[in-house]
């Protein structure tokens, strides 16, 4: 049965999803990208959009824990799935280990690419809690930063990984 999307003959789909722990239900146009849904429907403007070609990485979010380019991912496809964005990283007033490590290491300047780097780094550390510097470079090579020169970002991810493993600096 082609029932899941509700209106196989139309141009909208019904979705029930969880974004940053909150449940949402409603109708989306099939052509709405996940980035547009997050920013325009849910008001979660932390996720940025730039190249729209899956090359720059600023729109990176996690769907069921896997990193995706939300500029090239249909909002209809999050039906039944769980989405994490940069807004979901902090716990109340307490920033995530990655966020604090980025701040300590000056791993951001203008900040435009930062949500994407944070979400990609989270995806990496969830599958590999103790990555080498080379593994971090490889995993983040699809994210572009025009300010930092990348070194502080690598340092921040290494530091956050250590902290999350319980061998951290503070």
């Amino acid at each position: 049965m082609s029932s899941a999307t509700g209106s196989a003959a139309g141009s909208t789909s019904e979705i029930a999803t969880t974004v940053n722990g909150a449940a949402y239900r409603g109708s989306v146009a099939n052509r709405t990208t996940l980035a547009a849904y997050l920013r325009d429907e849910l008001g979660l403007k932390g996720t940025k959009v730039s190249c729209e070609l899956q090359v720059c990485g600023v729109c990176s979010v996690l769907v069921d824990g896997r990193p995706v380019s939300s500029c090239t991912y249909l909002a209809a496809d999050i039906d039944g799935r769980t989405v994490e964005t940069v807004e979901g990283l902090a716990t109340g007033e307490r920033m995530h280990e990655l966020q604090r490590a980025f701040v300590r290491n000056f791993a951001l300047q203008c900040g435009f690419c930062t949500p994407g780097f944070l979400m990609m780094s989270k995806a990496l550390l969830e599958r590999n809690p103790d990555p080498t510097e080379d593994e971090i470079r490889e995993y983040l090579d699809g994210n572009i930063c025009r300010c930092t020169g990348y070194q502080p970002i690598i340092a921040a991810v290494l530091e956050a990984a250590a902290e999350l493993r319980g061998v951290g600096v503070d």
Partner: peptide
């Protein structure tokens, strides 16, 4: 993106009944 319909078949046979020149397979996108 332009407008399009989106179906979500449960099995391969159902996919085969839907495919034609205008209705195409969609996976990672």
């Amino acid at each position: 993106l332009p407008e399009f319909t989106l179906s979500r078949p449960a099995d391969i046979d159902e996919v085969l009944r839907e495919l034609n020149a205008d209705v195409v397979p969609y996976a990672g996108g």
